[in-house]
């Protein structure tokens, strides 16, 4: 069991499965396919990201450094939140980037989403957590790998 403390972007409690990307997550490439297909779950579709490609992200704690790619990213995140197929938590090892940040705020302010977002968890967090691990997230930004 290992504990990390990050900055709270949007708070919440969560206990569940982690999916880990060691490289930047391309929001458009990852989520667009499932959103267009009006899927009930997001299956990560970014061919350039072998860490998460083909994995189910809905309801999971997506652990990542940052997001990358098209500036539709924030809006895409808002859409999947409105469809309620989003990862339940976004756990950033680095400072949140502008696209993911916008996506979280748009989702919270305009969609009333309860998506949890914590950033600045540090590189050690990303080096430690593995896909399939159970993580517990508290309102104060504490993330525990169980």
């Amino acid at each position: 069991m290992k504990e990390f403390k990050g900055r709270v972007i949007n708070p919440g409690y969560y206990k569940g499965e982690a999916v880990v990307s060691h490289q930047g997550v391309n929001t458009l490439a990852t989520f667009q396919k499932s959103a267009i297909a009006k899927a009930k779950q997001v299956i990560a579709a970014d061919q350039n990201n072998p860490d998460i490609f083909g994995k189910n992200l809905t309801g999971k704690a997506l652990c990542l450094p940052q997001t990358i790619g098209s500036t539709t990213g924030g809006m895409v995140l808002e859409v999947i939140c409105s469809m309620k197929i989003n990862p339940q938590c976004l756990l950033f090892s680095e400072h949140i980037d502008s696209l993911a940040g916008a996506g979280v705020i748009l989702s919270v302010v305009w969609e009333g989403s309860d998506i949890i977002a914590i950033d600045s968890l540090g590189q050690e967090f990303l080096d430690t957590v593995k896909s399939g691990d159970t993580v517990e997230i508290k309102e104060d930004g504490t993330v525990t790998i169980l």
């Binding site: 500036t71 924030g74 809006m75 916008a102 748009l106």
Partner: peptide, 24 residues
């Protein structure tokens, strides 16, 4: 927004813009 347009405006034109998301 539009990643390539923001990138060009900042770099080639010397304007100032963050990598804003759609809607922002």
């Amino acid at each position: 927004a539009e990643s390539s347009a923001v990138n060009y405006a900042n770099s080639v034109l010397g304007a100032r813009c963050n990598r804003n998301s759609g809607m922002i």
